[in-house]
Measured scan of single mutants.
Amino acid sequence: SDPSEDRAPESARVGNIPSSTSALKVPQLKVAESAQGPAAAHTTDTAGYNAMEESVSREKPELTASTERVNKRMSMVVSGLTPEEFMLVYKFARKHHITLTNLITEETTHVVMKTDAEFVCERTLKYFLGIAGGKWVVSYFWVTQSIKERKMLNEHDFEVRGDVVNGRNHQGPKRARESQDRKIFRGLEICCYGPFTNMPTDQLEWMVQLCGASVVKELSSFTLGTGVHPIVVVQPDAWTEDNGFHAIGQMCEAPVVTREWVLDSVALYQCQELDTYLIPQIPHSHY
Results as ranks from 00 to 15, higher is better:
E241K: 12
R13N: 00
C252K: 07
N102C: 08
A12S: 07
Q36P: 14
T197L: 11
L100C: 12
L268G: 10
K135T: 08
Q250P: 15
I17E: 14
H284N: 08
T201L: 13
F185N: 00
Q28C: 11
T44F: 11
Q171L: 07
E54P: 03
D181E: 06
N198M: 05
T223R: 15
S19V: 13
K183G: 02
A23F: 03
F128P: 00
V262P: 04
P27N: 10
S214T: 14
H286T: 11
K114I: 05
L88E: 08
I279L: 06
V257A: 15
E189C: 04
N16V: 07
Y49S: 12
S66T: 06
E159A: 04
E241R: 14
D157L: 09
A117E: 02
D116K: 02
Y90F: 08
G212S: 00
E107F: 07
P3G: 15
T108W: 05
G187H: 07
S57I: 12
Y287Q: 09
T108F: 02
V262E: 00
S66I: 08
S4A: 14
P18V: 03
K148L: 14
G162L: 00
H170P: 01
L210E: 14
D181Q: 02
M74R: 04
H170C: 02
Q203S: 05
T99C: 14
D157Q: 13
V143N: 02
I282E: 11
G225S: 13
N16G: 10
I98K: 04
S22L: 09
G134P: 01
V77L: 02
F92P: 01
L100A: 05
N50F: 13
F245A: 12
P9R: 05
T223W: 03
M52Y: 14
S4R: 11
V77I: 09
T108R: 00
D157G: 13
H229L: 13
A176P: 00
T240F: 15
S11N: 03
H97Y: 09
E189L: 08
P3L: 15
E159C: 12
F128T: 01
V70A: 13
A267G: 10
R175V: 04
A23L: 14
R73N: 06
A132Y: 00
E106R: 05
P195A: 05
D45F: 09
I184E: 00
H97R: 11
Q180F: 09
G187V: 03
K25Y: 11
A247K: 03
V14W: 14
C271P: 10
A8L: 07
V56A: 12
E253P: 12
K95S: 07
A35P: 09
A51P: 15
D242R: 12
L268V: 13
P61N: 09
S285V: 10
G15R: 08
T64N: 06
I17P: 12
I279P: 07
P230W: 06
Q171V: 08
I282K: 15
G37P: 07
I98P: 01
E253L: 08
G80D: 02
R182Y: 14
A23E: 14
S4Q: 05
L204I: 05
G130D: 00
V31P: 10
R168G: 07
K30A: 09
R13L: 10
K30H: 10
V165P: 01
